[in-house]
């Protein structure tokens, strides 16, 4: 009988428990939000929500602690890896991750990130590369592309004067303590799915105690690039991908088996 058929609505999506139910302050079209969601999903799927501690950077993600439902600390500019080291050394059973922008990680915090990798610190680092300083209004970052105009390189980045952009995944892959260093992108669904897998692996590396794990995510900054959101995604594909090839730069022994 028809009346007996109860149609259970199939739930196809719920907000991850590790992601707070709140508005974010990110600009329209910025992919920080996507990165947040992926990290939260991974934390949920691995069942880590109640034993994870995040460390927020200084940058647009400074308020990340408002958006994740996990314990969180807020570091000084660039020092998140050192702070995370302190947390992890005292609480080795906690999953500790930092979430950092390119100014934070690759400029002022290059010393800290290099040394956590050199020590093989058991940490997961989510590195959001948007080729610019977002929060302070669009100045040049160490990852700004050659010729890219920013508020502090008004005629375009002059590589004669400022050198070439840093490729952090490659650079950190060169250090012996690094177990996992990969680059992914957030400019389309396929790449977003691949990024999620990598984030998952980076947390599993920490769970298995294999050492330092970094996922670099190419991310958009429509506001400071001066582009509408869709064009900004296209800009990642056309401009950033050639300089920042996606790929796995270090996958240490034992990581494949995870």
């Amino acid at each position: 009988m028809l009346a007996d058929v109860v149609l259970e609505p199939e739930i196809t999506y719920t907000r991850p428990a590790a992601l707070a139910d709140t508005y974010t302050h990110y600009c329209p079209g910025c992919t920080h939000g996507v990165a947040h969601k992926l990290v939260a999903e991974v934390i949920d799927e691995l069942g880590l929500r109640e034993r994870t501690i995040g460390v927020a950077p200084v940058g647009c993600a400074v308020f990340a602690y408002n958006y994740f439902n996990v314990d969180f600390a807020e570091a000084a500019h660039g020092r998140a890896p050192a702070m995370a080291t302190g947390i992890k050394r005292v609480l080795p059973d906690q999953m500790v991750f930092t979430y950092q922008g390119d100014g934070d990680l690759a400029s002022i915090g290059l010393g800290e990130i290099t040394h956590v990798a050199a020590r093989g610190e058991n940490l997961t680092v989510i590195f959001v590369n948007n080729a610019i300083y977002g929060m302070t209004g669009g100045q040049m970052a160490p990852t700004t592309l050659p010729g890219q105009k920013t508020a502090s390189s008004p005629c375009g980045r002059d590589v004669e004067a400022t050198g070439l952009p840093l490729r952090m995944a490659e650079l950190l892959a060169g250090l012996p303590g690094t177990a996992y260093a990969v680059r992914r992108s957030l400019h389309n669904v396929k790449e977003i799915n691949r990024a999620k897998k990598a984030i998952r692996t980076a947390f599993q590396v920490q769970q298995a105690g294999l050492g330092f794990a970094l996922v670099e995510l190419l991310s958009s900054c429509p506001t400071n690039w001066g582009l509408p959101p869709l064009d900004a995604l296209k800009w990642i594909e056309d401009q950033m991908l050639p300089y920042y090839p996606l790929g796995d730069y270090k996958v240490a022994d034992g990581v494949e088996q995870l």
């Binding site: 329209p28 977002g134 929060m135 209004g137 506001t223």
Partner: peptide
């Protein structure tokens, strides 16, 4: 002339 100035880029 003194503006308000804030960290949020938009809105």
């Amino acid at each position: 002339w003194i503006p308000s100035y804030g960290p949020e880029m938009r809105g």
